[in-house]
Every structure is written in C-alpha cells, then in structure tokens.
Amino acid sequence: MVKKQFMPKWFYQLASPKWCYQISGTLLPYFLITALVLLTAGLVWGFAFAPQDYQQGNSFRIIYIHVPSAILAQSIYLTMAIAGGIGIIWKMKVADMVAYACAPIGASMAFIALLTGAIWGKPTWGSWWVWDARLTSMLILLFLYFGVMALYSAMEKPETAARSVAILALVGLVNIPIIKYSVDWWNTLHQPATFTLTEKPAMPVEMWLPLLVMVIGFYCFFASALMLRLRNEILNREKRAGWVKQLVSGQ
C-alpha cells in the first residue's frame, strides 16, 4: 500500500531533527541580521523622527515597543498551540521542541507588553495599572504562559510533558477568544468611561510606518530567538544521536 502524503515534502523533512538543525542554521543569520536592521531602523525612526502625538506628546512613542510585543505575545501562543497540535497529530519530535521553545519567548513578550503598557499608562491615564480590557486579557495570557511553563517544569519526561502541554495549549487556544470577549464585555459593563482615551484619529503614515517596521522586526527577532532555542533543544534531546556526537566532537 502506498502511504498517502497529505502534506508537502518539506513538512515531513521538518520531522527530522538533523535536517531541521541544518536548515535553521542556514536561515538563522538572515533572520538575525534582518531583525537587527529592522529593529534599529524602527527604533531610531520611531523615537527620533516620527511626529509627536497631538495629545500625548512624546509619551506615545512607547507604542513602538508596546504594540509589537503585544502582537507577538498573541501570535506566539498561536504558534505554540499549532506546533503542539502538530506534535500530537504527527508525533513529531521537532514540533514538540518548537512548542517548548515558544513558551518562554511568548511569556517575555507578554511581560514586555504589560510593562510598557504600565509605563505608558502612567502619563496617559494617571495610574500604573488600569483594569482595562486589553491589559486584563494580556495579563490572563501571561497567566496562561505561566501555566504552560509550570506544567513543563513539573514533568520529567520530555515526551509526556510535550503532549500534556500541547493539550493545555490547545484548550487555551479555544479559550482565548472567549476570555477576550468576556473581558471586553466585563469592562464595558463595570467601567463605562473611567478614562476617556478619545477615539484615536487614524494614524498618519509617518507614525504607522515605523510601527510596521518594528512589528516585522519583532517577528524576525522571534524567529531567530525561536531557532536559537530550538537548535539548543535539538542538541540537548538528541545528544545520543550519532550526528550530534560527531558535531560536538568535531568542533
């Protein structure tokens, strides 16, 4: 019987830790350089050249860190859950490792988003923390990351840990929209207009272009951080494999 292949060939190649190690080694420098260039350019552009906000003055510039990290925190959770799902369905070791590598990066992104949100909140809303719907759902996302990381560290065998975490991540993925909408609803009910961050005018091009650069830069940074952690994890888990021994002793 011919085995049916539902996915393109590269997908199956990804299952090989060795191939994955090599391809990520080739791709890594490109992503790293792109990330560095985009982040530097975006930061300089956003902090020094983008025009001031007519209401918030210079304090709005933290948006160039806040928004990308918030976007990343969410997409990393998605990546983690999808990688976990692939790990469950196709029993792919590399997908498990990707999910494992995602969690701390995502947690730090969520933390950065909360921290910059707090710093931004002080001049804008007059307090470090506001039970705003977005802040609250980001906080809950951070809790979800902590749960995933705690479950990882509680389990000894990496294979079972990976499958448990994948289930948890998928359950969390179903829950994220529910949490998001319930928090939105809760907030509009309980605090109709504590702070009136009036409807922002659509950002002018000079403002959102550096933001776009920063977002792409953050994605590239995430990709490079993920690959670095992944390569580390592959070497760690495959240390009994011949090619790893060869690689380590060869250097």
Binding site: I140, F143, A150, N175, I178, I179, S182, V183
Partner: peptide, 14 residues
C-alpha cells in the same frame, strides 16, 4: 490552580 484559574475567568465574569 495555575493551569485552571485563567480558564475559569469567563465563567466567573458572567
């Protein structure tokens, strides 16, 4: 508790 509390939030809210 760590795993479950975030998932309980919507039920609590409503």
């Amino acid at each position: 508790s760590l795993l479950v509390i975030p998932l309980y939030i919507p039920v609590l809210i409503f």
